[in-house]
Amino acid sequence: MEHPVNRRWSMRQRDWAVVLWIAFLAAAAGSFVLFGLVNPLDMFGQWVDEYDIGVRLAYGLVFAFLYLLCLLASALTMFMVRTGPARGHVRGKGGRAIPKVKDPSRSNPDLDGENWQ
């Protein structure tokens, strides 16, 4: 009997997995640093006194916010890299050739005399 093998992930699936995971790590690190410096209750206590949100919700909200921010940055980075010039671009593969230019009046004598030069 054949041993079952997991299907390989597509490039897009891998991209998203990496984005989600790395953003999570970055947000976790960000939360550690932030709450090492700031007491979460100080952040909310001032303006939303009537809803006493408690420490855990404060931690959660800030982490969610940081996660969202990191996700945005990661996803945009992924998008920019994936839609950028293809590999081999430097050797002139892919993309268009550099357009050639010439003196406008060379094959069009009537354009001479204007300030085309």
Partner: peptide, 11 residues
């Protein structure tokens, strides 16, 4: 041509 920079050196 040398090197493996991502980008083509456009004039």
């Amino acid at each position: 041509d040398a090197g493996d920079s991502l980008y083509r050196k456009d004039p």
